[in-house]
């Protein structure tokens, strides 16, 4: 008995210190990863704050060379840049609202069983198939034009209004929710709509918050639809604008006249400044939404 006890104590102590060792290496490893992830970002910051000739010569590492705020001043003077920020903001707000509304109301019925929703499997496949097969640029363009969306902000929102991947994620989350809650609410006399709004949605906040992050980032970064569907370059969202600023000119087969048209900003300090300013709003979305993840803890206790 005594021996067993001692051994147990020893084990505990050993476990205890093993836990600390684990913690140490765990934090070391994750910290290393974090550093790896931050370095390029710091490089971008340093370049954006450097003198442009130093940047072009590739002399800038992690610290600005010949500190200069010129690029930021210049970026903020660029009407197109500011305009495109505004366009992006509008697009994200409208787009995420539409996407989330549709994601939620589509995922909820699909999370029911076949008994509750006849044809559920059919509907599910109806949506999933669109994830796998697309018609290509031209027909999509034609449809967008025929429905009168061309050159409006809706051309960048409605064609992808139902993000199927997110619907599938959310419907799986809904499925996991404890049935008892719904049942007890029904017994309490709550209406369906009320149950959906007051119970289902609040319980799903961690998942919904995650999807909002995905969706916001998606809208903020998408440049292609802006380039294809918008006729006025003044309407371009930031991503389209930056894409055009940053794309590497392809000099294959290019004749002089075209080189002339394409020769453009390769001014790295300016583009890096614009990237940073452009990325800031979106980077801030995540920490803001993180608190919903913590709130989600409630769910666990309910399940238990």
């Amino acid at each position: 008995m005594e021996e067993n006890k001692r051994e147990f104590k020893l084990m505990r102590r050993r476990g205890f210190s093993a836990e600390y060792i684990f913690d140490f290496f765990n934090i070391l490893f994750l910290g290393f990863l974090a550093v790896c992830c931050v370095l390029p970002f710091i490089n971008v910051i340093a370049v954006s704050l450097s003198d442009s000739s130093a940047a072009t010569a590739g002399m800038v590492g992690l610290w600005p060379v010949k500190f200069s705020l010129d690029s930021y001043m210049f970026a903020f003077q660029k009407v197109r840049f500011l305009l495109s920020m505004k366009n992006s903001a509008i697009r994200v707000i409208l787009g995420v609202a539409v996407n989330m509304a549709l994601t939620i109301i589509t995922a909820y019925p699909l999370s029911k069983t076949v008994k509750e929703l006849k044809g559920r499997t059919f509907f599910a496949w109806f949506f999933v198939i669109t994830m796998l097969i697309g018609g290509g640029t031209i027909p999509t363009y034609l449809i967008v034009m025929w429905t009168g969306l061309r050159n409006t902000v809706w051309s960048m929102i409605l064609p992808g209004a139902v993000p199927v991947y997110n619907v599938v994620i959310l419907l799986n989350f809904f499925k996991q929710l404890p049935k008892e809650l719904e049942e007890s609410a029904v017994i309490d006399g709550a209406g369906d709509f009320r149950i959906f709004l007051r119970i289902i949605i609040p319980l799903s906040m961690p998942c919904i918050a995650t999807l909002i992050v995905f969706q916001t980032v998606g809208h903020w970064n998408d440049w292609f639809s802006g380039m294809i569907y918008l006729d006025n370059i003044e309407k371009y969202p930031l991503a389209t604008y930056l894409h055009n600023v940053l794309q590497r000119p392809n000099f294959d087969n290019m004749e002089l006249q075209e080189i002339q048209r394409v020769m453009k900003i390769s001014n790295r300090t300016l583009s890096d400044a614009q990237i940073l300013i452009g990325a800031l709003p979106i980077i801030m979305v995540y920490p803001f939404l993180q608190r919903f993840f913590v709130k989600g803890m409630v769910l666990g206790s309910l399940k238990g």
């Binding site: 050159n151 006729d231 370059i233 794309q247 453009k264």
Partner: peptide, 10 residues
């Protein structure tokens, strides 16, 4: 001008 695009590719 019914539409404009930036650069030859676009």
């Amino acid at each position: 001008t019914i539409w404009s695009a930036e650069g030859p590719d676009a």
